[in-house]
Design a binder for these strands. Sequence first.
DNA 1: TGTTTATCTGAATGATTGGTCAATAATGAG
DNA 2: CTCATTATTGACCAATCATTCAGATAAACA
Lengths: 195, 195
Amino acid sequence: MARKLEFDKDEALQKAMLLFWEKGYEATSMKDLVQAMAINRFSIYNTFGDKKVLLLMSLKHYRDHVLAKLIAPLKADLPAEICLENYFDRMSKQLSSASGRLGCFIQKTGQSHISSEPEVADLLQSMLGDLRSALLDVLARVRKEQAFKIAYEDETMADFILCQLQGMIVLRRSGKKLALVERQIDLLKTTVMSW
Amino acid sequence: MARKLEFDKDEALQKAMLLFWEKGYEATSMKDLVQAMAINRFSIYNTFGDKKVLLLMSLKHYRDHVLAKLIAPLKADLPAEICLENYFDRMSKQLSSASGRLGCFIQKTGQSHISSEPEVADLLQSMLGDLRSALLDVLARVRKEQAFKIAYEDETMADFILCQLQGMIVLRRSGKKLALVERQIDLLKTTVMSW
DNA sequence: TGTTTATCTGAATGATTGGTCAATAATGAG
DNA sequence: CTCATTATTGACCAATCATTCAGATAAACA
């Protein structure tokens, strides 16, 4: 019937995501996106929509491709305690790695002025919600499996973990010392998993 | 000899700071600043410099007027344990208050693309450094006064507190539930001050 | 009071912003 | 082969961006 798209939508979205992630929404111009996505300006508008919609789609791409992999250890078919430990180790590795330099796309977008747009704010909150419920699920399993004693309510504990990880990402971005990451994760572990 | 400035430099800087703090560097236009500072466009350039310099001055204003007050409890002439407790209470109140909505100017600027400018990055790091050394000082005093046992090295502990606070600010901005703040601070307290 | 000197003002700079358009090219069903 | 449909293209739009300028203004001291 009609002409086909000459590019792969997901590939283009991946490139848009990386750019938004690195530079932030406002500092990323359509010109930058055209260059990075290697698509004509109008094709972006035609395929995805305006800049804000493109950000929303990039965020969803992040949720489905990046966040999902980070959360995966929590959902593994293993004892809850192991899941949690694997998750911490995964985060520790991620934070220490060179790619950890980018920080968290959710956090970055949350600080941008575009997050005052309800659609963006809602999506960001639901993404943090995904992470939070994965933590809550694993904590519930810990209780059921009686793996260790949890000192506080699950919600408090989940938020505590979330705070600590987000805080580490903040400091990771503005600090030189990566050496501390491991010790911070250790401290987090022993705080949460105190027998 | 010559004419005087018609406005108060510090007042103007305060207004610039609030705008940068709320909207972020890139989303704040010179037009916005002219309006908020109630000074003519050229007077801003003439008095402070270009947009980047104005940001640097706003950050220093934040350090001297906002951050200094938040750190003050740590430097009070009281037993270290009381200082730390007062500091936590202060942060708890700040985070729960309406003005806590703004979050942390350092954190926000750190996520902005302008933080890739060395001058900005250096200033941000030195500001976080101020906070960190205040925490280290108080922890050293805790040891000397034998107020309570500190489970980890001071540096680890200071970073832990820093992470937790920065993390709470991240979540505070993108969440609805302020109720959790108090419980988080409680958990932080008992983690740090474990006898 | 007159001269000096810095501040103030609104207009204007060229560059860049996000977004659009008409013309062209490819596609595949009839 | 024909033709309706959709993608691609580079030029184009008005608006806004940060920054600057010349001229008007007003304070300070001799």
